Simulated assay, not measured.
Amino acid sequence: MKNKTVNILGFNFLNSTFNDFLTNIKKRINNRENTFVVTANPEIVVHALNDSSYKKKIQQSDYLVADGIGIIMGGNILGYDMSERITGYDVLVDLLDWGNKNNKSAYFLGAKPEVIADLKKVIAQKYPHLEAVGFHDGYFTDEQAIADDINEKKPDMVFVALGFPKQENFIINHRNTSDGLWIGLGGSFDVLSGHVVRAPQFWINHHIEWLYRLIKEPTRFKRMLALPKFIHLVKKQKRNNSK
C-alpha cells in the first residue's frame, strides 16, 4: 500500500498517525524488509536544500516523518491536515518495548562513549528480552568495521544516533548489509541514557519542546534560526502553488 504523503519544499513527508506508522514499521521488521526512516525537523530540511547530495539521500528514505513541530506547521500553512508528530525518541522507546516483548534484536550506534556505556545498562535493565547485538559510540574511525559487524549480526533494527547528516550518510552507505529497520535518531540515546532530560509533558503537549530545550541549552539559538527560514520558504511555496 502506497504511503499517504504531503509535499513540503520538495520532500514527501508521511502523513500518518504515530500508531499507524509504527504498525507498518513493525510489519516490515517482521517481514525482514529493508526500511530506511528519516525523522526530520526544519533544520534537516534547510540543510538538505543547501546540500544536493544530502537531499538525494533523504529522498531515498522509505519513510520521511515529521519529527519537529515546524514540519507540521509548514504542512498546515500549505493547507495539509497533517496528523501528528512522529518523533525519533518516541519511535525508539516504542520499538524497544515491542522488541523486548517479541524477542527482536537491535544494534545501537552513536553518541559519546559515556552515553553509550550508560545506554547499555538501561537497555539491559528495562528491556531484558531484547537481543542487543551491538553497541558502538559515534567516535569511530573505521566505518567499514562497524558495517561488517552489523552485516555479521543481522539485527532486526539498527538505531543510528550520529546526528545529521552523518547518520543518514552512514545508513545510505551500509543499509544493504542487513535487511531490517535503519533509522536516524539524533540525540535520542542521550535522553534514554539519562544524560539529557527531555522536556516535561506539558511542554511536549503544547508543542513548545523546542523552547524548553533552548532555555536549557542557549547555545542552540543559532540552530533554531532554521525554523523561521523554513517557514519563509514554505510561505513562498504556498504563493507559488497559488499562481
Rank of each mutant, 00 (worst) to 15 (best):
S61M: 11
A161P: 05
G75T: 08
V133T: 09
L192T: 02
L192F: 06
D148S: 12
A132C: 12
G180W: 01
I44N: 04
A106H: 05
H206Y: 12
R32C: 13
V115T: 13
L9G: 12
K112M: 06
N100P: 02
D67F: 07
I150N: 01
A111F: 04
A124T: 10
P155R: 01
L227S: 07
I25P: 00
K56Y: 06
Q59S: 12
P42L: 13
L109Y: 11
P42W: 09
V191G: 10
E114T: 10
F230E: 10
V234W: 00
I72D: 03
S242C: 09
V160S: 07
W182S: 00
L95V: 06
R85L: 11
K4G: 10
Q125P: 08
G110D: 00
V91R: 01
N241H: 12
Y63C: 08
E143Y: 10
I72T: 05
I69Y: 05
D190E: 04
A48Q: 07
N30A: 15
N205T: 06
K120G: 03
A145H: 11
L214N: 11
G75A: 09
K112A: 08
G10C: 11
H232R: 11
Y80S: 00
N3M: 12
Q144N: 12
G75K: 03
P165Q: 10
Q201T: 14
R239L: 13
E209H: 03
S61F: 06
A117G: 06
S53E: 15
L95P: 00
I29F: 06
G79D: 07
H206G: 12
L49Q: 07
L192W: 03
N76F: 10
F159N: 09
F159E: 06
G163H: 06
W203D: 14
K121T: 07
E33N: 08
I116M: 08
K229Y: 10
Y127R: 01
N31S: 03
K57D: 09
A40K: 03
I172H: 05
I25F: 07
V197P: 07
P218R: 04
S83Q: 10
K101F: 09
K229N: 15
E114W: 10
Y127N: 01
H129Y: 12
E152Q: 14
A199T: 02
I77N: 09
M82K: 00
T5S: 08
H232G: 15
A147E: 12
Y63N: 04
K243I: 15
K154Q: 14
H174W: 01
F135I: 11
E43C: 07
E43A: 13
E217N: 12
I8V: 09
G110R: 00
D148M: 03
L233W: 12
A226C: 15
G68T: 02
G194H: 09
L78Q: 10
A106K: 04
Q60E: 13
F164D: 15
I116L: 14
F135H: 01
S193Q: 00
G68D: 05
K166C: 14
G194T: 01
E143Q: 05
E152L: 15
L9Q: 03
F135R: 04
S53Y: 08
Q201G: 08
P200T: 13
G134M: 10
W182K: 05
P113Y: 02
N169Q: 14
T35H: 11
P128M: 05
K229P: 05
G79I: 00
G10Q: 05
E209V: 13
K236H: 13
E168R: 01
G74V: 07
D90Q: 06
R175A: 08
I8Y: 01
K55R: 15
